[in-house]
């Protein structure tokens, strides 16, 4: 869970920063998307790096999900009887929503690939014009809702997930606990805000 989670997190930071190029207009954004297909050249053939990354990320998503399923099965079996008296949990909202938050993110990833990679559900769906596709997307109210809800879920998932991964990997200690929690919150807020900036910018007309 921790290993795959951290790999996906690294991708998300790069992805979020890349998305912000949308603020510099269609030429810059589209040429950036084109450049993504040239990474690794000439050692690698065109788009090979992109495909390696795709397979790597799909493996991460699947392994992360399988591990979450196995852990949940084991955890539910270890606590078969609930208490009659259930006071409010003391764990944070982020901690308590890891399972459902993860399910929301998995559904979002499927939808997101159908939307902006395969362009199957994209309102414009013009190949090699990611900027135009993104702008077309966020003209539609429910696309905005899907993206914003998913990004809020992502923020909560990372808020608990980053620190929890540090615990699991043995990277936490009494001295580092505060720093890791602050880092988790900064990452969560930065990723959520950075990703949400794009639909919001299209909605208010800053990007069109």
């Amino acid at each position: 869970m921790a290993g795959t989670g951290v790999l996906m997190l690294l991708f998300l930071v790069a992805h979020m920063l890349g998305n912000l190029k949308v603020f510099f207009g269609p030429e810059e954004f589209n040429s950036y998307a084109g450049w993504l297909r040239t990474i690794g050249e000439p050692v690698l053939h065109a788009s090979w790096f992109l495909w390696l990354q795709r397979f790597g990320l799909i493996a991460c998503v699947v392994l992360h999900g399988v591990a979450a399923y196995q852990l949940s099965r084991r955890d539910l079996a270890a606590r078969p009887t609930r208490y009659q008296h259930r006071p409010p949990a003391r764990a944070s909202y982020a901690t308590r929503t890891m399972r459902w938050g993860g399910v929301i993110l998995a559904l979002f990833i499927v939808w997101h690939i159908l939307d902006l990679t395969t362009l199957t559900v994209n309102p414009l769906g013009k190949p090699h014009h990611p900027y135009e596709n993104v702008v077309a997307d966020f003209q539609v109210w429910y696309v905005n809702v899907i993206y914003i809800v998913a990004m809020l879920a992502l923020g909560f998932h990372i808020r608990h997930g980053f620190w929890s991964a540090a615990q699991t990997l043995g990277a936490n200690s009494r001295d580092r606990d505060r720093l890791l929690k602050v880092t988790a919150n900064v990452l969560a807020v930065a990723l959520t805000a950075g990703f949400i900036a794009v639909p919001v910018a299209v909605m208010i007309g800053v990007v069109s």
């Binding site: 852990l71 084991r74 955890d75 539910l76 079996a77 270890a78 606590r79 949990a89 003391r90 764990a91 901690t95 308590r96 890891m98 608990h160 620190w163 929890s164 615990q167 699991t168 936490n172 200690s173 009494r174 606990d177």
Partner: peptide, 20 residues
């Protein structure tokens, strides 16, 4: 069960064994 770092254990522990 497996640990999900919920932290309930540390709060309940009468001896204050820390989560770290």
């Amino acid at each position: 069960g497996g640990c999900t770092n919920s932290g309930e254990c540390t709060i309940a522990c009468p001896k204050g064994i820390p989560l770290q």
